[in-house]
Design a protein around this nucleic acid. Structure first.
Length: 556
RNA sequence: AGGGGUAUAGCCAAGCGGUAAGGCAGCUGGUUUUGAUCCAGUCAUUCAGAGGUUCAAAUCCUCUUACCCCUGCCA
């Protein structure tokens, strides 16, 4: 990871610096704790880079821990995809993968300890009753009628819960804290619920499952986490996090710190909403390249480094924020401009016939793979009398601002000769089908000897030698900057978020393209071979991102 | 007066009592066989607002305002 040059600074790193200096901690231990109930998205990448980045920079460790306390919503497939995504992003977790479910025995023991201390009780209030007893934001709650059950009886009841003698939802184990607290999460929060569900890690061993607030802090403590980083909505929960650790017999090292979650314009970043997009078939799965998931960015041609750079640029604070997609695009363009080999592709081909070029001749031109990085070498590109060029790169007539092919005007064919258009053919609808031109034989690698210099450069492929390709052009999924605020997604979906071009022509060297490895199709943007779909008769390319286009901006 | 948080440029974001970093976006020029890249320049007399302390305030104090989060047997 070469981006380690300048370390980011943020309030969490400042806390760690202080903790290290004061001797509160001698080393740093973090963790990334996803629930395996969906795919990781760019918001998770922020957390991953924060946690693993801190571990790297401070020579500490970072665990990967699945927070798997809700078996009904979780799945082993998500465990696998999450591990894959973290590795792909370029991080290695400390030791084996951890699971909160590994600690179910210990957690149970701590629950028993709380009961013995008179700090937890089994409550038979149903969900509706519990809600009533809880009170509201402005009104205090009232004590459960089961709050004063004896320790002995609570122990027996909890044992029944554990032994499967209570029905689903019949009762819960609650902490005895304060039903009048202004922190709602301190109004006797639920620690355990009864759930006869098969768990992807523990099978049918348990029929009671611990809640997040009870599990997370203890899992952190068990693993020796020093700095437990989470998002802002858990700020209130920190009081419960600390309460549990203070009231149980465990060596306490972890402290929770909260940072703001990432919001990105023109997309949604909540698992629930992403799941909705998948289930309603608004996209083609979690890894549809229009999704903001790690898997989707990967499929689209984003590099791990570009995503890491993005998380570095957006920073870590406690301020609510919505980042413009331009920041993300700038990151991937910067990476790919330096590293993606160039190639030529024509998305909307029209024929170009060079009338003074020998009809049966094919030249094998040597073309640079990168305009300024010589180390990327060269490749062979065939040149012949019949080529394809982009339909929008030709006009019969145009003003001086149009720097492409116009009748009686010259342009450079990228990496080849200077040509001058002479005439064109059109179909019955008036669309240009073929452009005729002459070429200047003495312009390969140099400007015309008459001192003129063509004002434009256009890309091309040789007609006979080119390959057929399908090209998928992606754009933002939503038409509004903040789709999450919308009640109905369907009304703000961008109908042009995917444009499939089936008749593209690409240069022959692209037979060797590898999935996910982006090329710059000159003058068009960055594209990579799709890593999933395959067609026998043509290559399938995804557009990662277009080139910056200041001309399009002023033209419109 | 429920509680917990946050306010610095269009969007992110440094700053931590000594006179407003940086990135993205934008705007001006220059180079260029990609309308890309690259290069140079430009872009907050002011930090949500009002008071106060100080030689000195985005930084400290007081009040006000706006926005976000909290009433799952989700995480």
């Amino acid at each position: 990871m070469s981006e380690a040059e300048k370390r980011p600074t943020n309030f969490i790193r400042q806390i760690i610096d202080a903790d290290l200096e004061s001797g509160k901690h001698s080393s740093v231990q973090t963790r990334f704790p996803p629930e395996p109930n969906g795919f990781l998205h760019i918001g998770h990448a922020k957390s991953i880079c924060l946690n693993f980045g801190i571990a790297q920079d401070y020579k500490g460790l970072c665990n990967l821990r699945f927070d798997d306390t809700n078996p009904e919503k979780e799945d082993i497939d998500f465990v696998n995809s999450i591990e894959e995504d973290v590795k792909w992003l370029g991080f290695e977790w400390s030791g084996e993968t951890h699971y909160s479910s590994q600690y179910f025995d210990k957690l149970h023991g701590f629950a028993v300890e709380l009961i013995e201390k008179g700090l937890a009780y089994v409550c038979f209030l149903n969900a509706d009753e519990a809600r009533e007893y809880r009170g509201t934001l402005t009104a205090p709650g009232k004590n459960s009628p089961y709050r004063d059950t004896s320790v002995e009886e609570n122990l027996a009841l909890f044992a029944k819960m554990k032994n499967g003698e209570c029905k689903d939802g019949e009762c819960v184990l609650r902490a005895k804290i304060d039903m009048t607290s202004s922190f709602m999460c301190l109004r006797d929060p639920i620690l355990y619920r009864v759930r006869f569900a098969h768990h992807h890690q523990t099978g049918n061993e348990w029929c009671i499952y611990p809640m997040y607030d009870f599990t997370h802090c203890l899992s952190d403590a068990i693993e020796g986490i020093t700095h437990s980083l989470c998002t802002l909505e858990f700020q209130d929960n920190r009081r419960l996090y600390d309460w549990v650790l203070e009231n149980v017999s465990i060596e306490v090292t972890p402290h929770q710190y909260e940072f703001s979650r990432l919001n990105l314009e023109y997309t949604v970043l909540s698992k629930r909403k992403l799941q909705m997009l998948v289930e309603e078939n608004l996209v083609n799965g979690w890894d549809d390249p229009r999704m903001p998931t790690i898997a989707a960015f990967r499929r689209r041609g984003y590099t791990p480094g570009s995503l890491r750079e993005f998380t570095k640029r957006i920073g870590v604070t406690k301020m609510d924020n919505t980042v413009e997609i331009g920041v993300l695009e700038a990151c991937i363009r910067e990476d790919l401009n330096d590293n993606a080999p160039r190639a030529m592709a024509v998305l909307d081909p029209i024929k170009l016939v060079i009338e003074n070029y020998p009809a049966d001749q094919v030249e094998q031109l040597t073309v640079k793979n990168h305009p300024s990085d010589e180390t990327q070498g060269t490749r062979i590109v065939p040149f012949a009398a019949e080529l394809y060029i982009e339909a929008e790169d030709f006009r019969e007539e145009a003003n001086k601002k149009y720097k492409r092919l116009v009748i009686d005007k010259a342009v450079r064919l990228r990496g080849a000769y200077v040509i001058t258009a002479t005439r064109c053919d059109k179909d019955s609808d008036g669309n240009v089908t073929t452009v005729y031109c002459t070429y200047n034989e003495d312009t390969l690698g140099k400007n015309p000897t008459d001192g003129t210099k063509p004002k434009g450069v256009i890309h091309w492929v040789a007609a006979q030698q080119s390959l057929d390709a399908e090209v998928r052009l992606y754009d933002r999924l939503f038409n509004v900057a903040n789709p999450a605020a919308e009640e109905d997604f369907n009304s703000v979906i961008n109908e042009d978020s995917l444009i499939t071009i089936s008749g593209a022509k690409v240069e022959p060297s692209l037979v060797n393209a590898k999935p996910e490895h982006a090329f710059q199709f000159e003058r068009l943007g960055y594209f990579c071979l799709d890593n999933k779909d395959v067609k026998s008769d043509k290559l399938i390319f995804n557009r990662t991102v277009g080139l910056r286009d200041t001309w399009a901006k002023t033209a419109n």
